[in-house]
């Protein structure tokens, strides 16, 4: 169970990495934490000509608190995000999602950007980003662009990132006063990818009704779903709106029917848990 032979590239800057991507395009794999790429390489599911190791690009490992968002660099490790006071304060939903991501040992190496770039439909970090209506920062050798997270994920393992683009950062909208967040998932074992997961950020009016809710649903469709509802009446309306048009995935551990049931249970759970 050994990878194919590949050229190893360790650029010193994101610009260099982007230049390499322009050179190799599809035939390169970008290695951040390697928590998914490593196994896929070992299994020879992925057979790149070159591996571009960005795990040491310090310029992509930062947390920056901007006026309306928190920017996390692509190679920020999950463990560092989890222990960050800024993340806990400014992006509490991410802080709640992270303990569900893999395990202590994989969070020590795995990155936020790697998870988003991989685009697993059941992954927690993409779900949190979609829920909060965050933004993905990309760059190629010539220019940078920003893609709303809700448009970034196109299908299972398929994203809007072009082969010559590098994911450089994630923009997480900062928490506002009066907001409540919650995250819940159902996985077969602790640390497994979710069979279904739900996340929300909501504000209530003075009567306790939901004034506005950002809701995310993961693991159910080929990509995480995020939606924003203004003034839904009650939880069941949120459930109905969130599941409208959803065609759930099927696999051996969950039928579509079961996933839909779980999704409804989890949506109720997060809405009730959020304040």
């Amino acid at each position: 169970m050994k990878p194919v032979a590949f050229e190893y590239c360790r650029p010193e800057t994101a610009a260099e990495a982007a230049t390499l991507l322009a050179e190799f395009g599809f035939e390169a794999s970008v290695l951040a934490g390697g928590m998914t790429l490593g196994p896929m390489l070992n299994m020879r599911l992925v057979r790149p000509t070159a591996v571009i190791d960005i795990s040491r690009l310090d310029e992509l490992g930062e947390i920056e608190v901007a006026a309306d968002h928190v920017l996390t660099g692509a190679t920020l490790r999950q463990a560092d995000a989890l222990s960050s006071a800024e993340i806990a304060r400014e992006v509490p939903l991410l802080a709640r999602a992270l303990p569900h991501v893999g395990h202590f040992q994989t969070r020590n190496r795995g990155t936020l950007g790697g998870s988003v770039a991989h685009g697993d439909p059941a992954a927690e970090i993409p779900l949190a980003l979609v829920t909060l209506d965050g933004t993905v920062q990309l760059r190629d050798a010539r220019r940078a662009r920003r893609v709303p997270a809700r448009e970034f994920f196109l299908g299972a393992l398929e994203t809007a990132r072009r082969p010559d683009e590098l994911l450089v950062g994630l923009e997480w909208p900062r928490a506002a006063a009066g907001e409540h967040v919650a995250f819940a998932e159902f996985a077969e074992r602790h640390g497994d990818f979710a069979i279904a997961a739900a996340a929300c950020r909501l504000t209530r009016d003075s009567a306790g009704r939901i004034a506005r809710i950002d809701l995310g649903l993961g693991g159910v469709e080929a990509r995480p779903r995020g939606l924003t509802l203004e003034g839904p009446g009650d939880v069941e309306e949120v459930v109905a709106a969130a599941l409208d048009g959803v065609e759930a995935m099927e696999d051996r551990s969950a039928s579509a029917e079961y996933r839909m049931d779980l999704a409804a249970v989890l949506i109720r759970r997060v809405v009730e848990a959020a304040g």
């Binding site: 190893y8 070992n42 020590n108 190496r109």
Partner: peptide
């Protein structure tokens, strides 16, 4: 930091 050594490479 505790990390898997099977999913990274010697050169790293």
């Amino acid at each position: 930091r505790a990390q898997r050594s099977c999913t990274q490479f010697a050169l790293q």
